[in-house]
Design a protein around this nucleic acid. Structure first.
Lengths: 226, 226
DNA sequence: CGGATGATTGATATATCTCAAGAGTAGTGG
DNA sequence: CCACTACTCTTGAGATATATCAATCATCCG
């Protein structure tokens, strides 16, 4: 069955953080852990919107598809992030694992009931959703007004903050093509911009996924440049 | 002073819709009506985040500024929409009236207290914020992956739904330049796309702001085209 | 080691931007 | 009521960033 929340890796950072022991016990009865392999989806665009979840480990993407069939990634999910869309019967996005990942999954309707029964949970979810909205709007600015070079630099800064706080080296959770879907670019443009950053000594690329930020300051400048 | 909520134009559609009489009376004590002239701002990027509000009439825009100084509109607000960012000390966006407008304004901290005291209000705000997030992500798809022609068509469809449900003619609340800021384009490109739609008989332009959708179906197709 | 997939690089095409000029609309004040 | 002046909008020509197409090259995995 479901193990308790005592050993949860994101106990103090997920939506459930503000719950007291009794509330947590009630909520934990509804949840199940689920492992995902890289490439597996939890939510499918257009399908029944069956689940909500907390991300325990790994990186996921939230994708929308253009009517013409092109993909746009509208959010990246990291450990402790909340996933899902309460109060909607069907899902307008898909959610797919970019790396192997682990989730704490709740049936959507039960989770909605938990929201109604547990005011700290509702409030925390509201705060998170407001944060997500800010992030989404910030990303709109990037998509609408930044150059390819600034987009790529921004994404690297963003991922480094999540995956290697303090700076240094980390593994990219995304392929070039996946980065292109996040940034509204194509594969070749992403590749060229990375090559240029490496040539200029701002980053160091090691193999397909290895990256080190050699000059975070310069990278930040490029993320903000016209 | 502040008149009651009985004559409120958006009584049954704004965040306060689910409140009972007592709850509404308590909330209404905190709010004041405020008129805005076209061009006036209620919220300034980077400033103290002092207010939340309901839009009673008019159209407003929520803008973000690129570090390089370029503008991107991240949301349009219509009557009954909620405006503001609870739980944040400073504001990351500016909010400006595109037409003369009327708001029902609440001091942010008092509104936060009301959220805590009134569970239907909190739940309604959560639902709205989730809707806003969906809309924002949908717009990300447009910014990242649609062509100029599809962007302009999409915006027209969107505005028509809000301003002239049922189709037909309405006045554009935005100048060409303001449309460009919404779509991540420049003025000339917006103008050319509109001219083309008119030449093709999909819309009819009358003066600067007048527009009629002659062929909503064709417009929809163009909004979805590659 | 070999094959498959993903990444890089180059040449070319094209959508959108930029720059520049002219035309249409309002609004203003005589 | 009619210039006059401010904008805003349109249109065109040319520049440029990014996309597309195509080939080669790494890297990873079995």
């Amino acid at each position: 069955m479901h193990r308790g929340c005592e050993d949860c890796a994101v106990r103090d950072r997920a939506v459930c953080a503000p719950l007291d022991d009794a509330e947590l016990a009630a909520l934990s009865k509804l949840g199940r852990r689920r492992r995902l392999r890289r490439g597996e989806s939890v939510v499918f665009e257009g399908d029944d919107n069956a689940v909500c979840a907390n991300v325990l480990s790994g990186v996921l993407r939230v994708n929308a598809t253009t009517p013409a069939g092109r993909e746009q990634t509208v959010a990246l999910l990291y450990p402790a992030d909340f996933l899902g869309r309460p109060y909607a019967r069907s899902s307008t996005h898909s959610v797919t694992a970019l790396t192997d990942a682990e989730l704490c999954v709740f049936p959507r309707t039960l989770f909605e009931r938990a929201i109604g029964d547990c005011s700290p949970l509702e409030n925390q979810l509201l705060r998170r959703t407001l944060d997500d909205l800010d992030r989404s709007r910030h990303w709109m600015m990037l998509l609408g007004r930044k150059s390819a070079g600034a987009k790529v630099a921004s994404l690297l800064v963003d991922m480094a903050e999540r995956l290697a706080p303090g700076g240094g080296a980390f593994d990219l959770p995304l392929t070039r093509g996946e980065m292109a879907d996040v940034l509204g670019l194509n594969i070749e443009t992403v590749s060229r911009q990375l090559t240029r950053l490496a040539r200029d000594g701002v980053i160091l690329l090691r193999g397909r996924r290895g990256i080190a930020l050699l000059d975070s300051h310069a990278l930040g400048e490029r993320a903000e440049a016209a």
